[in-house]
Each structure stands twice: as C-alpha cells, then as structure tokens.
C-alpha cells in the first residue's frame, strides 16, 4: 500500500514561508476553487491556508535556538477526522493514503476540525466548506508536467530542500530512508493517529575527534627524534661519485 507523505527537516528549515506562499498560489488557482484571502495587505488580514510556518524559541537566553516549524495536514494513517464526518465528504484515499475533502459534499459543520488534534483543517470563510492540504493531488499525477515537477508546490518551492515528498511505506524511498536514518518522528504520538508526515529533528553536526587521532602514534618523524644533520666537512654523494 502506498502512503504519500511529506518529511520536513527542521534542521534546514529557515522559516522563509516560501512553502506557504507557493501552496496558496497553487491551490487558489486550481480547479477546486479559490482559497479565501480577505484584506491580504490591509488591517486584519484573514484567509485560508493549507500550510503555516510557526516559530518557536527553544532554551533560555543566551542559549536559545529558533525552530521554524511548517505545519500542514499530516495525512494520518488512522485519521480521526474521517470517521466523524456525517456526510462522507472527508475521506482517505485507498490508493495513496491522501486525506481529502469533497468540497461538493461538505456541509461545513466543522466537526472534523474538532476531531483533528493538530488543527490542520480550516473552514473557508467564503465557500463555507472545510479545507485542508491535498498534497497537491491535482499536481503530483499531472502527466502534462515534467516528471521532476510532479511534486507538491511546497516541496518544489523550498529553497533549502527541507521538504521531502514520497511514499513512506516504500522502505527504499528517500523519505523512508530519511525517517529511518535521521531520526524522523511523528507529532503528538499519544493520540495514536499515526501521522504519515514526519519531521526530522535538529541535528548537531559534531565530528568526534579523539586525541590519538590528532597525533599519529607511528609518526616516523617523532620516532627518529631530532633529524640527523648533514656533516658539512664530509664529501657529499655528488663529490665521490662521477657519472
């Protein structure tokens, strides 16, 4: 079974919000209709977004570190938002595990947003239906695009390649390797939702150097001690031989 997902590397995310804007641009222009954006450059801006970048300061001054945290729907393997939907508008696709909302069936009762512990769903103020990240389902299967571009808009936009996209059920995929080898984790594991999206933690790039690696035990120079000096009186090799 396929489970498409994002893996977000908090070690390289710089919090530039490029994923937020590219997501909004792609998804507001798609066939599913616009995403509300009221007063975008004015007082009280208000709009629907599938993806947000939040910033957290970890530690105590001066030993602090900023963690930029992109947050979107995690496409849970056991999504609590799906069974509570009274109309069946909210569903999880069998073939690739993407959790989607059928905007034509949604009645806007907001019950699914209550059932999501991550706050990944937003009610569109104008269309009055629930909206959420689609993993750019209208893009990743679009064969008119070059194969390299069949990825979610946020993944393509990320300047530091902090976002990886792939099948987390395929053990050899880039995302599975990253989760396995770089300590990928899920958010709020306590609720048993099994999020498909994973995050890679901050990692310190330390190299462990031992003392004996700095000083070679078998250094020939050190073994011979003081380098033998050339005796000036004696003839050199050139003096006693002739060709």
């Amino acid at each position: 079974m396929t489970q498409l997902a994002l893996v977000i590397d908090l070690n390289v995310c710089v919090g530039c919000h490029a994923c937020v804007t590219s997501c909004k641009q792609w998804n507001t222009s798609g066939p599913a209709g616009f995403m509300s954006d009221d007063n975008p450059y004015d007082k009280d801006p208000n709009g629907t977004f599938f993806n947000r970048v939040q910033s957290f300061e970890i530690g105590e001054f001066p030993k602090t570190e900023m963690v930029h945290f992109p947050k979107s729907c995690l496409h849970c393997e056991d999504p609590p938002c799906v069974p509570v939907c009274p109309t069946g508008a909210s569903y999880k696709r069998e073939e690739d595990g993407i959790v989607l909302v059928d905007y034509d069936k949604c009645i806007g009762c907001k019950y699914c947003s209550w059932a999501c512990p991550y706050g990944a769903r937003e009610l569109d103020e104008h269309q009055k239906v629930m909206k959420k990240c689609t993993l750019c389902v209208d893009r990743i299967y679009d064969e008119t695009l070059p194969e390299a571009e069949r990825k979610p808009a946020c993944v393509l936009a990320c300047p530091t390649s902090a976002r990886l996209f792939g099948d987390v059920h395929d053990p050899d995929s880039q995302v599975s390797t990253a989760i396995r080898e770089e300590g990928g984790y899920a958010l709020m594991p306590e609720w048993g939702t099994k999020p498909a999206n994973h995050y890679l933690p901050r990692r310190k790039q330390h190299i462990k150097i031992h003392e004996d690696e700095l000083i070679r035990a078998d250094n020939p120079l050190k073994k011979e001690g003081v380098k033998p000096r050339t005796i000036i009186d004696e003839p050199t090799l050139d003096d006693i031989t002739s060709w």
Binding site: N39, D44, N46, T48, F49, Q54, S55, K71, E122
Partner: peptide, 15 residues
C-alpha cells in the same frame, strides 16, 4: 523551555 514566537499569521485564522 519552548516559547512560541510566531504562529504563522498575524490576523488570526479559523484555528
């Protein structure tokens, strides 16, 4: 010690 500095928007949202 985790202190949120930004929630990703300034005008509020559905959340």
């Amino acid at each position: 010690n985790i202190d949120q500095k930004a929630m990703g928007m300034m005008g509020g949202s559905f959340n």
